[in-house]
Amino acid sequence: MPDARTQMVDAAERLVAEGGLGAMSLRAVQAAAGQRNKSAAQYHFGSREGLIEAVVAARMAPVNERRAEILAALDEDPSGPTDRGLVEALVVPLAEHTLGRPGSRWARFLLQASSDPTLAEVVARRVEGRSYRAVVDGLVAVLHDVPPPLRSRRVGQVTLLAVGSLAAAESRPARLPLDVEVADLVDVCLGALTAPSTAPAVPAPHP
């Protein structure tokens, strides 16, 4: 049986995914986790922000580890990372640890958290770890059809697209096989990422 801390992390993920960040208080998490000790959440996490940090750390540790493995394999290729390989490094770890984790509500949690200005920074500190930044840097370097000032912005938009798609898939009662879901999402993200830009020229910044 999971320990009290794990139960509260799971409960916090569920509450945020189903009701938004406003539904997640320390008291609500304790109740949802079946904790009778009224100071359990305060003891384990210190504050609501500390609980959010704990949820993000617990979910993103395996995602970042898997992403680092994919990036290491790409680096071993003599021809270097491809745009598709980098998109797979972005999407596959998230898909495996959301759609591939029974009962996951993590993508829905991320989608809720990313729209809350008070907690987006807390989430970003963990989500945008070293492996994610390596993917962003790699993609910026290969997006030759996108003006340089728009490249990192394009990657951010595709990241939100991936999270939103996974969040929608998490809530569907019937899904395609995981490998089909992942391959299709990679195709969609790659198409959006590499689409030639028709935006007006971005003026150079003033010195």
Rank of each mutant, 00 (worst) to 15 (best):
R84A: 06
A167L: 01
P147Q: 08
D83F: 05
A201E: 14
A169R: 14
E88L: 00
G50T: 01
V55H: 12
C189T: 01
S165R: 10
V91L: 09
D184Y: 09
G50W: 09
V146F: 01
G20C: 01
S115K: 15
A72D: 10
D116C: 01
L190P: 09
M60D: 11
L176Y: 14
F45C: 00
S25Y: 03
P81K: 09
G156V: 02
A89Q: 05
T82D: 03
A120T: 13
P102N: 11
W106H: 13
S39T: 03
P117A: 03
V123E: 13
D75G: 07
Q30F: 03
E128M: 15
R36K: 12
F109G: 02
A32D: 12
A192K: 08
P81T: 02
L150Q: 14
P196F: 04
V63A: 07
A168S: 13
L119D: 00
A120D: 11
R27C: 03
N37S: 02
G129P: 02
L178Y: 10
A23R: 00
G129A: 10
T159G: 05
R27P: 02
V180N: 11
L160R: 15
P148L: 14
V29T: 03
A162L: 08
V136G: 05
D3R: 09
M1R: 15
L176A: 12
V136W: 15
A204C: 12
A12V: 00
S25E: 09
L193R: 02
L166D: 04
A68K: 11
L15Q: 01
P81Y: 05
D75H: 06
D83E: 13
V158K: 12
V180R: 15
P81D: 07
P200L: 06
A33N: 10
S197P: 00
A40E: 12
A17V: 06
L176F: 14
L150N: 08
V123L: 13
S115G: 12
H97M: 11
A201W: 09
A57K: 14
D83N: 09
R84F: 00
R172S: 00
V122I: 14
D116N: 05
V136E: 13
P177F: 08
H97P: 01
L193D: 02
R154L: 02
L193K: 03
S39D: 11
G22F: 04
T198W: 15
Q35T: 00
R5L: 05
L110S: 02
A41I: 02
P200I: 06
D137H: 07
A28R: 03
R5I: 04
R84P: 01
A141T: 00
A107P: 01
A141K: 13
P173C: 04
A32K: 11
N64D: 14
T194C: 01
G85T: 08
S131A: 11
L74C: 06
